[in-house]
Design a protein around this nucleic acid. Structure first.
Lengths: 281, 281
DNA sequence: AATATTATGTTGTTATATTACGTATTTTTA
DNA sequence: TAAAAATACGTAATATAACAACATAATATT
């Protein structure tokens, strides 16, 4: 709960003078952040120490600290907390909730990412003779997207959304091949099988999936997409975006490691696309 | 643009001492808000007036005012500022940058979304006899993903990544059909053509694309994915995530509008998938 | 009604920020 | 390349703001 909410919350339990202070702040928090303690005291018709005591009541070190917290609680207005959509939400509400939840999921993932594992995964990808992205169902497009991305970065890639193809490719895998297996739950039988086959043939398996899942056990490197609390209907949406972002990170890592020559390649690709486009005005 | 972004933006145009100050602030903006001018000056190895001048450079009345603004730009404590990846970034650094940029892009999009247009788009989707998602290249997987999502919500959907198929479907379009056309630039010739054909046949075209683009002109409703400043190599990544999130919003809107019956449907789908999975422990 | 307790204000001190000015550095011009 | 101008930066003095300690007033308790 942010500072401003706390003030509202505790309005009743404040004594006379402090309530005066609270009311001035609530009345116009934005300008309150610009006032000196003297001005605020005057505006509330109380003494300066009263304002100071008021601030300390709210876990602030003093008046300046209080103002900083107040400013922060004013910022943006919306704290990034995953809130689930309700049946009677307005368009504004559910739009905001979806964006906010997605941001919250990314933020959690950001904090939970293991840079060591990313680095390890990049090591494998760089040395790969062939990279295959595997994903079924909702993870299918994620795999295809990864293919596009890595292709742009001039790497030998393929994506498969078809179980039979996956099996065939896994069966024909060699040491040096890398399979990136994408699965939200990590429990899709077929994918777990394919991962095992690939591994048995000496390939490296990078999993983008849930921790402690059957798939996780088959992976050389597992990048866990930390899954937030509620697993309701809307979850797969945000988890998929986390997966995509993890793949962005991997692609970036590979690119950086490969050095400068890729810029040339990228230029070529961009050129090749120009013909298909209307020119910019 | 918030204060922190401004600082990033003007880093180059600052002189030596001021850049020192900027770097300290950027390095840890959160604690910077708690420092006195003396401490900050010391941390940056400059004099206090230099810090003061620095603050005034950024349209602040003085140091305290600057801190307030900084605090506000720090919503929730984490600075979500799009920073581009540098060649010599460590794994931690580029990982964080990618996540942060993605979040920043979503945040910008969140603020820029027009709820009225979302609502309008949802209206069309709900009444649609048939919904087709069209995307080429990097937007292809986005279209396919949308198909998956909307299918789960029991809507008559298809996705096309193939130009010829698109043309055929557009040519056979009827009033009541809805085409969702996804394009980052909005300048892909083929897509623009297809959109026009679909419109001419009475279909509704919902664009998820850039404003003022050729594609935008062919759309019944345009959901602009506001594109942040720099269009360098990494941009398409984040823009695609904004597109996906917009589609999440649309899917959610449709679901909410359709009421309760869809829960039944969702349950059925979940059941059907169970057989393919290893059970949860 | 007397006492204890809490609330609030006054004063002086300390911390903090800012101004004014001077020196050093860089840039420009001859 | 030297001289002049402009800009950058720091020192020291000053003004402002915040706080602590104490005193007084108000309220609650017995």
């Amino acid at each position: 709960m942010n500072l401003l909410e706390q003030i509202y919350d505790r309005l009743d339990s404040l004594n006379k003078s402090e309530r005066k202070v609270a009311n001035v702040i609530i009345g116009d928090p934005a300008t309150a952040t610009r006032l000196s303690i003297a001005s605020l005291a005057q505006a509330a018709s109380v003494s300066e120490p009263t304002v100071n005591r008021f601030c300390r009541n709210f876990e602030a070190k003093g008046y300046p600290d209080f103002k900083i917290q107040l400013a922060q609680s004013l910022a943006g207005g919306t704290p990034y907390v995953s809130r689930s959509v309700e049946q009677d939400d307005s368009t504004e509400e559910y739009t905001d909730k979806i964006f906010t939840s997605t941001i919250a999921a990314l933020d959690i993932a950001r904090k939970g990412v293991n840079a060591g594992l990313i680095s390890k995964a990049v090591d494998y990808l760089i040395q790969a003779k062939q990279i295959s992205f595997l994903g079924l169902g909702a993870s299918g497009p994620v795999a295809t997207d990864a293919q596009h991305k890595f292709f742009r970065f001039n790497l030998p890639v393929a994506a498969y959304e078809d179980v039979l193809m996956m099996r065939m490719v896994a069966a024909a895998a060699h040491t040096g091949d890398v399979f990136v297996v994408i699965s939200y739950t990590g429990r899709t039988r077929e994918l777990v099988d394919v991962a095992r086959i690939a591994r048995e043939n000496g390939a490296t398996v990078i999993g983008i999936s849930a921790e402690n899942s059957p798939l996780a056990k088959e992976c050389t490197v597992l990048l866990a997409a930390p899954t937030p609390e509620d697993t309701d209907i809307y979850m797969p949406m945000t988890s998929r975006i986390v997966q995509l972002t993890l793949l962005d990170v991997l692609a970036t890592g590979v690119t950086l490691r490969r050095g400068v020559d890729f810029h040339q390649h990228l230029k070529k690709i961009k050129e090749s696309l120009k013909a298909t486009r209307y020119p910019s005005e």
